[in-house]
Structure formats: structure tokens, C-alpha cells
Design a protein around this nucleic acid. Structure first.
Lengths: 217, 217, 217, 217
DNA sequence: GATGAATGAGTATTCATTCAT
DNA sequence: AATGAATGAATACTCATTCAT
């Protein structure tokens, strides 16, 4: 039994070894630019071995997605569950959660965002595609959940929480891609943090239903 | 001289013919999916001919970008120059300008956004890359300009107008990509319009420096 | 007009150049053993060029088939149309026709026979598959035609001519493959000619309806 | 000694288990279509295990040949040894023997015939190649033997019996492949039986040295 | 100016086979 | 004896790009 466990663990380690290599290579070269051979080399394995762990290039790529999405959902839900925070403070915490994920692996966030909005999802195995769809719904719901309380207690504008979630997520994705573009022009600067912070500040103010325009952070 | 002019005009027409074909094909198949042959076929020309007008596939693609960016900049500057509008109303008009561009050719907006934030810019000729950078700066400045007045007369939060512009542009880009992703899950629905509207509403409220939280649209 | 004709001719020549190379390579290595690169090399062209003239490996192979089948059908129909020959003599002439085709390019006859009876036909484009089916029916009918007269005038056994045709064709195919097997064991000897001759002699005798067992060759 | 014997027996059983699986898989997918993994799966063993019993894929395939050839030789020799049958009747019995083998496993007869006449024999180990050659000679001799008596007692045409054997075997092989081709065109029909019957009838008549053309079946 | 024809360079994927355990 | 895991080597096919005409 111990042996089986160890084997299982080793197998999982190999998967991670490949995923990590893939992360580095995809981040550096993008989806089309990265070749299976590149990734295999980075993982110090043969290309054929990769196919023992992933059905094809698409699924390997998608599994990176999945990994990031899972982390993201977890972080967002953590924020939501911090019972002692006011809705407004949770939004600030949400900002941090989003930024944390970005900071941890900026290139992959960028890749993942690009992948999600692409036609390339079509080649995935149904299971994997569904898992990604599910996780995408999950983080939408998680963000929406954060706004829900504020709406319910009447301190936020009276709109569907998913609309808030769409905006926050869209804002995050857009700023990440946009700042990345600008960084392409001048790679030394990274303004995402302050820009995201300002954006969330604006939103925090903008969604207040009543009261004066004094920010509460 | 008349002859040269005519030739010049004809040459420009051919360029447009190719760009239009490329727009349709890229929109339908994405960058990697579209082949030069596809585009040539759509343009009713031979593949070799395309290379008389564009140095390579990347530059052809980039020129679509440029075309859209020019339209965009123009529209935004139009908004800015409407002297009789209050800053707050200009922001609402900006929302319409952005949406107009999207509505006119959604797939290309999506492609262009994706292209801009990608590594693929690296293959461009320096001139073209610079032109794109310039135009990107231009529309950033244009958006910023709209906020500038509001900041100066003290009705908007006291931040650098480019920060506002980043946020608006990032929001637009993010929502386009994000809604497109969701449409991938359920292609019948297009929530971009109302979501974008709500987002601009929030921002309009959020950036007001003083005064009560009554929207001014 | 002359130019177009020349181009057409040149194009046809390229096709032949490829087909000839393919014939040599397939003959030497069989279908699975031969690679597109081998054939391209033999044709002194690049692999990519082959794909300008043939959709894929299967179709290239199939077109060799087609070429041989056409020659075969022609020869058999020639025999049938020799109005001054008695049915019995036509069968002898048929034997020669079959052997001629084999002698001209034994390896390809062998390959073609093997291909026809294989699953690999399934990958063909419908048009090509149909053309092959049609030609196969044609040579069956052609052989059958030779027997038909003898059956009608009552000098051959009273069976459906297609049955005779099946037997002659099966015999030919079987002996070709079988002798080839034996040659594999001892490549210097080629007994096909006498064995085929004896077989046709037996059949000629065996299908006579009445009369003594004196052969009529 | 008893233990060794048992081990030997078990080993032989494993071999059979693999051969049986291989038969099913090769029959269903052909030689190139079948993978070692397919066969291993069917045999409920791991691919690596197959290599304990067979040197490589070719040898495994060849051993199917061998199995079928052994059955065939046995059946033919049984026919030859039925002392109470006239030569002519033996030929009819030979027809049944051939058809029996085909009927028992048509796809494998087809595969084996194709294999035998191919270049693929070249990869075999010398021992196996020799065994196949030997068995091929054996069934040729066996068939020849059936004709030999008829030749000796002067009732058949005065030719070398191997020539008769070649013809019968070639006819069988050719009809099997040819009918299989036609079945490819219309998979519901199987004319092998009647066609083979008619062919043997013709041969029976055709090889009679003297006497009238009355069939003796 | 336009293009038909040719190709170099690239790449995902497969599979028979090996070998440490 | 059995096998899970690993891989070397192979190969059909694609496509952006070039260039003689």
C-alpha cells in the first residue's frame, strides 16, 4: 500500500514537473510559439513522455489554466468568507487577491486570460473544457458573492451582483493585458498595482448607494 | 504627375482590398488559423501579390490594428472636442464611442486587443511597431484628455488623467474579452452594452470629487 | 493559348515525374515502407511539392493503381475486340495480355493487387475511390466479355461469364502473389509465365462444354 | 522435472493467449493498424510482457502465419491420405479443406496471404523465416501430392505435380483476395464458396488426360 | 504589377522497444 | 515472470515566403 502511494506521488510529481516546465515555456513564448520539444527539454524529459501525462498540447496548456483558476477561486472565496469585514473592505481585499495571483506569475495570468477568450478551447476534451467552464463560473460567482452582501444590506447600488463581478473581473483582465502592452513598450515599468488600486477605489466610491462621496478605505 | 497620383490611388485601393479581405478572414479564423492563402483567396488575388503590399503576415495583421486604432482615436478626439459637453457627459459619450467601434466589427476588436497584448508584436518592422505604439499613446492621451478638464476644474478626483484613461481602456478591453468568453459558453447572449454602461455609470459616480452621489447623466 | 497549353503539358509532366518516382519507390519498399521524403528525393523535388500534385500519400499511391488498371482494361478490351479470334483463342490472348502487364512492371502489379484488397482504400477521396471501383468493374466486365461469346454460342460451360472472369482474375492475382512469395525464397526464378500458361491451358480445356479433351491451342 | 514441464506448459499457454489476442486484433485492424498495445490489451497483459514471448511485432505476426499454415498442411495431408478416394475426388476434398480454413477465420487468411507475399518477411529472424518457408513448401508438396497419384496412374495431364499445386494455391489465394476486394465494394455478399467450387470443377475437368468431358463429382 | 510554382523549415504525434524494479 | 515508465526515431503534412517569368 505504501508502494502504491509512493508511485502515485511520483506520478503526480512528474505531472507537476511537466506543468512547471510548461508554465515557464508558455510564459516565455506564448501558446503557438512554444513547442512540445521546448517544454520537454525544459522538463528534462522526452517529448513522448509528455504524452503519457497529457493528451496533447492543448490539454497541457489548459491544465495550466485550471491550476491558476483554482488558486484564484480559492483566494476569492477566502475573502468572501472573512465574516468580520464590511462589504466595502472586502472589495479592497478582493483587489489584493487579484493582484496576488497576478504577482505570483504575471506571464501565466496573461496567457490564461488570452487563452480563455480564444477559439482554442474548442480542441479540448469535453471533460477539461467543462472543468474550465465550471471554474470560470465559480470565480464569477465568488466575486459576485462579495458584492451580494453589500447589495442586500442596501449599501451598494441595487444591481445584480454578477454585473459587479463582470466589471471587476473585466477590469482586472483588461488592466493586466493593457499594462502588459504598455510594458511591452517600456518593460521596466509596472503600473498595474497603482492603477488597479485606483480603479478599485473609484468603484468602491461609485457603487455606494447613499451618503457622501467620502471614501471609506 | 496625374498618372503617378492615379497609380498611387490604385495602389492604395489594392491595399484596402487586401485589408478588407484580411479583416474578414482573421475575424473568422483568428491569427494562427488564418492562412495567407485564405486571405489571398478572399481578396481574389494570389498569395504572392499580398507580399507586394505587406512585408509579411504580421505586418498585414498589424495594419488592421492600425486601421481600427485610427478610427478609435478619431472618435475619441471628436468626443473631447465637443466643447459644449460637461466632462461628465463626455465620459458618457466616450462610452458610446468605444461601443460603436466594438459594434462595427466585434471580432476584429477582439483580435486586435489580443494582438496588442502579445509577444507577436516583436516580429514587426520597427516602423510599424512604432506606428502602433504611437497610436496606442494617442488614444490613451485622447481618453486622458477627456478626463483632464474635469480634473482641472476640480470636479474629478485629483489624479493624473492618464490613470483614468488606463482604467477606462482596460475596462473596455477586459469587458470585451470577458463577455466574449462568456459568449463562448452561451453564444446567443451579448451583455457587453449594459455591462459597459453600468461600469461607466459607476466610474462617473466614483470619480466625482465632491457632491452627493447623484448620477448626472 | 500556346502558353497555356505548354503550362498544362509541363504540369502533366511533373505529375508523371512524381508518379514514376513513386512507382520506383513503392515497388522497392511497399506502401508503408516508402516515405514521402523517399519519393520526393527520387523525383528530385521537395516533399512539399508533391502535395501540390497529390492530396496525400494515399492518393498518390492510388493513382499508380489507376494508371495500371487503365492499361490493363485497354489491353483486355483489345483482345475482346479482335473479331477474327475464336473464344478459345481469345482466352489464350487474354493470358498474354495479363502477362504483358505483369512483365512491364512486376513490382507494381504486386503492389496494386495488394492495395486493392486492403483497408487503405478507405482514406481515399470519394472521387478517386470511385474511379478505382469503376475501373475494377471495367476489367471484370472486360474479361467476362471474352467468355461471353463462348457461352452464348454454346461452346463453353453454361455459367455466368462473370464467374469465369472472377476465376481468371483471381488466378492471375493469386499466381502473381504466390510466385512472388516463392521468388522471395529464391529470387532468381520466375515461374509465373509457364505456370500461368498451364493454368490457362487447363481452364481452356475445363470450360469446354462438349467434345473430347483435346486442347485446341 | 514435473515442475519444469508444468512451467513449459504454462509458458506455452501464455504464448497461445497472446497469439489468440493478436489474431483478433490483426484481423480487425490489419498489420500496420494494430499496435502492440492493442494486442497487449486484448491479451490482458502489458506490452512489455509480449516481448518475453516474441522478439518483435513481425515475429508475432509471423507466428500467426505459422499457426494457420500448420492447420492447413494438416488438413491437406489428411485429404491426401484418404486412401479410398480417387484422385479426382481428392481434389474436391481439397477444395473443402481450403474453404474450411478460410471460413474459420477469413480476415486472418487474408492477412496471412498478404503478409506472405510481402517485403515484411525480410525483418524476420532467420529461424522463423525458415520455418515459414518450410511450411510453405510443405503445403505446396501436400497439394502436389494429391495430384501426384492422378498423374502417375495416367488420369491427369502429364505435368509436374507442383505446377498443379501452384495453380490451386494461387487460385485460392487470388480468389480470397479478389472476393474480399469485391466485398469491400458490397460487403454483404460473399461469393467465394461458389466461385471456388466452380473453379475447382473447371480444373477437375481440365486436367483429365483422356476421356470425355463429363464431370465426375 | 501579378502570379504559378516551388520549397525550407518546422512540429505534433505515434509506437515499437527497452529496462529498472 | 511481469510491468510501468520512458524514449528514440520516424513521418506526414502545413504554410509563410520567394522568385522566375
Amino acid at each position: 500500500m505504501g508502494i502504491e502511494e509512493r508511485k502515485e506521488r511520483e506520478k503526480e510529481q512528474r505531472r507537476q514537473q511537466i506543468i512547471n516546465a510548461a508554465e515557464r515555456v508558455f510564459a516565455a513564448k506564448g501558446f503557438s510559439g512554444a513547442t512540445i520539444e521546448n517544454i520537454a527539454e525544459e522538463a528534462e524529459l522526452s517529448p513522448a513522455t509528455l504524452y503519457l501525462y497529457f493528451k496533447n498540447k492543448d490539454e497541457l496548456y489548459a491544465s495550466l489554466n485550471l491550476k491558476m483558476l483554482k488558486v484564484l477561486v480559492e483566494k476569492i472565496e477566502d475573502v468572501r468568507n472573512r465574516k468580520n469585514l464590511s462589504p466595502a473592505k472586502k472589495i479592497r481585499a478582493l483587489e489584493n487577491a487579484l493582484y496576488d495571483v497576478y504577482e505570483h506569475d504575471p506571464m501565466n495570468v496573461i496567457n490564461v486570460l488570452r487563452f480563455q477568450s480564444s477559439e482554442e478551447l474548442k480542441n479540448l476534451s469535453p471533460e477539461l473544457a467543462n472543468q474550465i467552464k465550471d471554474d470560470a463560473r465559480k470565480y464569477l460567482r465568488a466575486i459576485a458573492g462579495i458584492f451580494e452582501d453589500g447589495v442586500q444590506i442596501g449599501s451598494f447600488l441595487d444591481r445584480h451582483p454578477v454585473a459587479f463581478a463582470d466589471i471587476v473581473w473585466g477590469l482586472f483582465a483588461g488592466l493586466v493585458l493593457w499594462e502588459h502592452t504598455k510594458k511591452g513598450f517600456d518593460p521596466r515599468k509596472d503600473f498595474l498595482r497603482p492603477t488597479l488600486g485606483f480603479a478599485i477605489e473609484i468603484i468602491s466610491r461609485g457603487i455606494k448607494k447613499n451618503g457622501r462621496l467620502n471614501i471609506d478605505n
